[in-house]
Design a binder for these strands. Structure first.
Lengths: 180, 180
DNA sequence: AAAGATTGAGTTATCAATCTTC
DNA sequence: GAAGATTGATAACTCAATCTTT
């Protein structure tokens, strides 16, 4: 047993972590068996929100959102620099309409060009431009230095966290992680 | 050094986890020092998305979103069943405009009522109604049973995950977790 | 008819501007 | 003037409906 987080309401000096406060309330209401799961899921939501805010703030000078950055990043990894928009949605696990929107914005910014697939005219190819490559490389470098390399965990802790999150993704039936 | 995750591109049989694929690409591009952090942050975004989808699907029959559920839950925990909307935003870490929107919807649904603070007429109090209490208890029970208690990790793994996420929140300057 | 993508409607979140009260 | 909240504008996502091509 470790020291319990203080639930003392008189400790008004430092602001109590809202997540730990919620957890205490859960326990006090007799929902002890759900308290830790609630706290974990709330914490996941919170840290995601903090990361997306941080990343989008850094990308703003480039006129990119994280979603659009991911599209560019994906295209830049392909051999020919292009991918059908359906494939993009599949890889990034986003709705087709979201891909249409992102690719439209990227095309308006001159970072990708659209063309119809030569073998299947139903399909639309998104092709990264030179300008798009320049932008995505700069953004990748920036995010690598300021965010991804800066994660305040030891390497083995990152691997541990990845494993735990992987379990959760599997349980939730993440299509990207089939249990087969 | 531990065994590296497979980067073998020939394993095309089962759909590769997009996150592990991105990680491989990061390593192949010489961004090894950022690869695990990128994978962790991408995984956090993904699992958050899966949880929010799952939770909102379950809340839909009640006409609630997760954000609105959180507001109700917070109010139900207070002694008098009421809180200034500014405090709500502070606790849940959301923009004042978002609170206004959520409370407006909740009021339209008859789950909360608004009144002006007696001691400071600038401030608006949100007060949970009997109907709101009934709804939030039903939703809490449902989420506890189907989501929060069902987290597919052992108790000590949940605590481990909470600790690791806590480190990340601290690094990101989560106002709810001051480093003092 | 089915697959692939787009469009339009509805919802939510954020930001700046505004309005009231202190 | 500053604090607290609301409003209006903008952006992004989801869903259903539509359109083209297979």
């Amino acid at each position: 047993m470790k020291a319990e987080p203080s639930t003392d309401p008189s400790s008004a000096r430092r602001p109590i972590d809202p997540i730990e406060l919620a957890r205490s309330n859960w326990v006090l209401n007799g929902w002890g068996s759900a308290a830790s799961g609630m706290a974990l899921i709330t914490a996941l939501m919170r840290v995601q929100q903090l990361y997306i805010s941080d990343i989008e703030r850094r990308l703003r000078p480039f006129g990119l959102t994280f979603a659009r950055f991911e599209v560019l990043r994906l295209l830049a990894f392909t051999k020919r620099g292009e991918l059908p928009v359906g494939k993009i949605g599949e890889r990034l696990q986003v709705h087709p309409a979201s891909v249409t929107n992102a690719v439209q914005r990227l095309e308006d910014a001159g970072l990708v060009r659209r063309s119809t697939h030569p073998d299947d005219r139903r399909s639309v190819l998104a092709h990264i431009t030179d300008s798009g490559r320049t932008a995505v490389e700069a953004c990748t470098e920036l995010l690598n230095e300021t965010v991804f390399s800066a994660v305040a965990l030891k390497p083995e802790e990152i691997e541990q966290a990845l494993r735990l999150i992987g379990e959760l993704r599997m349980q939730l039936g993440d299509p990207g992680r089939p249990s087969e």
